[in-house]
Each structure stands twice: as C-alpha cells, then as structure tokens.
C-alpha cells in the first residue's frame, strides 16, 4: 500500500482551468519576437488612427494617459500553444479611441514601431474587447513585451495583440498582416483553433 493518499495525485481534468484546444497553461510570460525590440521614447511616441477617408486622429503619450483608463484582467492565448490566465493590464479601450472617428470601415490593420502589422475585423476592436495597454501587473509594460504600449485583444490569438503598437489603419477591405501573409489565419480564434490559413 502506498503512502501517498489519493488526494495528492493531482486535480482531475474536470477541475483544470478551461483552455482553448491544443493549449497548455504557463505561469511564465514567454517573450516572442520577430525582430529587434524597438526602443520608443515617450516624448516622440504617438498613436494614430487613419480612417479610410484619409482623416487622421493622433494622440501623444500625455494625451493617451489623460483618457479614461481601464484595468482588464484577461486570459491570453499564444498560437505557439501557451496560455496565461488572469493577466492584469491597464490602458485605454479602443472604443474610447474610436469614439469620434467617422468611419464605415469593417477592417483594421494594426501597425507597430518596428514594422509589424496584423489585421482584425473592426468589430473585434469594439464592444469592450480591445485596449491599448501600457501597464502590466502594475508596472510600465517592458519593451520586450511591447512597451511603451501594445494592443490587447485577448479573445484572439496573441499575435493579434500587436506589440509596440503605433496605430490602426481602418480599411474597407481586409489586408493581411505580417504573420497572416505567411500562413497564419486571418481571424485567429483560439477556441476554434484557427492557427493557419484554412483552419
């Protein structure tokens, strides 16, 4: 007879946190990057929304910080199969940034310092689903995780949450971004395991 009681044999699967298919839980915060880390000064940082009619809306760092701040606590899911639950952020809702932008566009191409891009339906950036975040776990977002500011769209795979985000180009047609032109899915729903084109 063993000395280990059944109570020490681990939690049954039914009590595991709900994860999208094919994902594993991590307590770390892995750093993924497709290039050198941009170092962006807050003095020159800006966020720009360009509407399809050519109009532009710009925010400096000070202007971003003066907007109403939100503190989403969300689960994040990377297409490389790690998921991290209950992450704490602070930033500005994209709803707030889009307020006052006159657009009939259905798509957005997020673009970043360093040249990264990713495409999303505009509806997925609205309705309290997306933020431009600058703080993680109560501290300024480190550059390796996308600071000064990154997009946060937690209901899609994390490559959609563009690091070092610089702006959104609103578009009438969907234009695939950096990974989407190299085989990754245009939408990227982790619960439907939309990793690659055609999934």
């Amino acid at each position: 007879m063993g000395i280990v009681s059944p109570g020490f044999q681990g939690r049954p699967r039914t009590q595991e946190p709900a994860l999208p298919p094919g994902q594993y839980l991590t307590e770390d915060f892995p750093v993924l990057s497709a290039g050198p880390t941009p170092r962006v000064s807050l003095d020159t940082w800006e966020f720009v929304i360009s509407a399809e009619n050519g109009s532009e809306h710009r925010w400096s760092w000070q202007e971003l910080m003066a907007l109403p701040q939100e503190t989403p606590m969300v689960d994040i899911h990377c297409v490389t199969r790690w998921s991290k639950l209950g992450t704490n952020w602070q930033g500005v809702s994209v709803d707030t940034l889009l307020d006052g932008v006159d657009t009939g566009a259905h798509f957005a191409l997020a673009h970043s310092y360093g040249g990264y891009t990713t495409n999303l339906p505009l509806d997925d950036l609205r309705g309290g689903q997306a933020w431009v975040v600058h703080t993680f776990d109560g501290a300024p977002l480190p550059a390796e995780h996308g600071g000064p500011a990154r997009l946060l769209v937690p209901h899609l795979y994390f490559w959609k949450s563009a690091k070092w985000v610089r702006g959104l180009r609103l578009k009438t047609m969907d234009e695939p971004g950096f990974w989407e032109t190299a085989g990754y899915h245009d939408y990227g729903d982790p619960w439907r395991e939309q990793r690659y084109q055609g999934d």
Partner: peptide
C-alpha cells in the same frame, strides 16, 4: 522565438 522563423538583413534589419 516567434510563430515562425524570420530572417532579417544584417545591414538594414528588414525581413
């Protein structure tokens, strides 16, 4: 350390 391999120019860092 990315969803794919990205090879950049050693001179200008473009992909």
């Amino acid at each position: 350390h990315a969803p794919g391999l990205v090879g950049r120019c050693p001179s200008c860092e473009e992909v």
